[in-house]
């Protein structure tokens, strides 16, 4: 089955059956610096003392 997948399934050419002992570390793409640099572009958090009551009148299921 493994041979058939490697030969016939386009996305399965590297599949080798049981996960160990080989794993896939040699054929996994790494993060690149350009992509990682863009990860910082979005995201924020609330500080503990910034947490306050939200407007519950907008919560649909409470209506």
């Amino acid at each position: 089955m493994v041979i058939a997948i490697r030969k016939n399934v386009p996305a399965g050419k590297d599949y080798h059956g049981p996960p160990l002992p080989y794993g896939y570390i040699q054929s996994l793409e790494p993060w690149d610096e350009t992509t990682l640099a863009q990860a910082n572009d979005n995201g924020s958090y609330l500080e503990t003392d910034q947490v306050e009551r939200v407007d519950l009148s907008k919560v649909t299921w409470i209506q």
Binding site: Y24, L28, E29, P30, W31, T35, A39, D41, N42, G43
Partner: peptide, 20 residues
């Protein structure tokens, strides 16, 4: 390592301007 899978959803999030 992310592999193709991780890189793909990272691209999706980035293109939409989402946090990832």
């Amino acid at each position: 390592l992310p592999g193709k899978l991780g890189l793909k959803y990272a691209k999706a999030s980035r293109d939409l301007g989402w946090h990832w």
